[in-house]
Design a protein around this nucleic acid. Structure first.
Lengths: 166, 166
DNA sequence: TATTGTTATACTCTATAACTATA
DNA sequence: TATAGTTATAGAGTATAACAATA
């Protein structure tokens, strides 16, 4: 759909070391945001491949957990706790409902809102997923050591606070 | 575009503690991937707001750095080094070209390929951006301490390796 | 035949505005 | 008026397939 770009017909050789070794990325490999992003992408790729067996994406997985731990809560509360916009959470819940994993029940006290719960099928799938998760997560802990892994999470939480405090 | 969902008209009260305190997210706040994701989103939000003055998104910023450090390299090499698919890198480069920040020059040795360079305008913008970046990055280092910050990056690199080794 | 850059396309995630039904 | 859920829509990011020019 973009208009085709026409560029100057200037000629030049590539850099002398073109095609050989690695590129110099300057400060990028030491930037908090860059390392965070590349790592997060790798971890999510891994997660998605691992949980594809169960048909669960990261956000779906987190929604099932949140509903299990807080049955009967409003849709907007669950969404907010997960950092997902209410409007975007609707499609996610539609999928889980369609698959028979969750149920939205009109509240009798406030008929605007939905109380979310897991179906038995949803609870069973989540149990299976939690089993997979344990092995999945153990790899990180065993590669880093339990102390270092906990330290990583603490540092990430600190960084998050620094960023969101603006 | 989705078909409208019809749901059962069952009624139920919300959870007794609905509307009160925080939700219990169970294992989520201690999961590598979850904490990584929430942190990365917060850091990127912060980055995007900070560099909106200069009109630079994270990927554009990283592209300018990579081109500056490796002038004359092929478009495909720069894209690969940044972990961006060649097909998706085209639109990114179109934008930078249109803004007069970069130039794509046909190689005289391999006329299929483009040698990427910064224009003087691009180099000047990047200099400004690097100045902003230094202050931006300093917040993380000073909040964590230089040693802890370096440790964080090391742990992230290790985690990335664990995930991508599959 | 293979590679470079490109186009087209689709899917996910995210963000905002506006509607509806209820309060 | 305000809130909960929803719809529509748009913008990024990402993934694959296929094409033209060139090797």
């Amino acid at each position: 759909m973009r208009a085709t770009q026409r560029r100057a017909a200037i000629r030049a050789d590539h850099a002398p070391n073109a095609g050989t070794g690695q590129l110099d990325l300057g400060p990028l490999p030491n930037l908090t945001g860059y390392v965070l992003r590349r790592t997060q992408l790798a971890v999510f790729d891994d997660f998605i491949r691992t949980f594809a067996l169960l048909g669960l994406r990261p956000a779906q997985f987190s929604a099932l957990i949140a509903i299990q731990r807080n049955p009967g809560r409003k849709q907007s509360e669950i969404a907010a706790a997960l950092g997902i916009k209410q409007a975007n959470f609707v499609a996610l819940m539609d999928k889980l409902d369609q698959r028979g994993l969750t149920r939205r029940v009109r509240s009798s006290t406030d008929r605007r809102s939905h109380a979310l719960t897991l179906t038995p099928k949803g609870a069973a799938l989540l149990q299976k997923a939690l089993g997979v998760l344990e092995k999945y997560e153990r790899r990180f802990v065993s590669q880093l050591g339990s102390g270092e892994h906990e330290r990583l999470l603490e540092l990430l939480r600190k960084i998050r606070l620094v960023s969101s405090a603006r």
